[in-house]
Amino acid sequence: MNSKPISSPCDEFQDPLKNYDPKVYCDPLMKALAEEKVTSVQYRPVAAISPQTTIREAVQALSKLKVACLLIEEAGRLVGVFSDRDVLDKVALEYDTLRERPVSEVMTRDPVCVFDSDSSAAALSVMAVCGFRHVPVIDVKHQVVGIVSPQRVTEFLRKQLVK
């Protein structure tokens, strides 16, 4: 006769996080990038314009504000970005014919974002893998709360290096 007790589903459950230990970084620079939230490298307020803004006005805004990237927002939602690179690639040689057209025609749509709860390393990985130099930071309601630029990342890295 088999005397083995019948196990209940609760006995068979194995917690997948039971043996999970978050990675421990010894390297101070990696530790800072992995553990500090992206909000510590973002900057705000962000420079934002509407999709109906003309290309001429957008180009002037980039220059006047001395920024390399403008966010394009419609009804509080991010719909695109317009950067120095968009000027070079899509506008420069065609400027005379495009200048009064809306910036929505040449903006980069659906930029890759990070959440404000993500690590700084996540933003940096977006820059490296996706090729975006400016990464908007959004909250759970998908409202833009900041933007991460390479300047801010290099500033952050250098601070850690000279500590």
């Binding site: 990696m30 992995a34 990985s125 490296a128 390479p150 990342v153 290099t154 890295l157």
Partner: peptide, 20 residues
Amino acid sequence: QKGLMEYVAEHFLQQVSVQR
């Protein structure tokens, strides 16, 4: 900036994998 970001990102392969 881009070259430097790629270099640093290589040290965070898990994050890079997510993006990839």
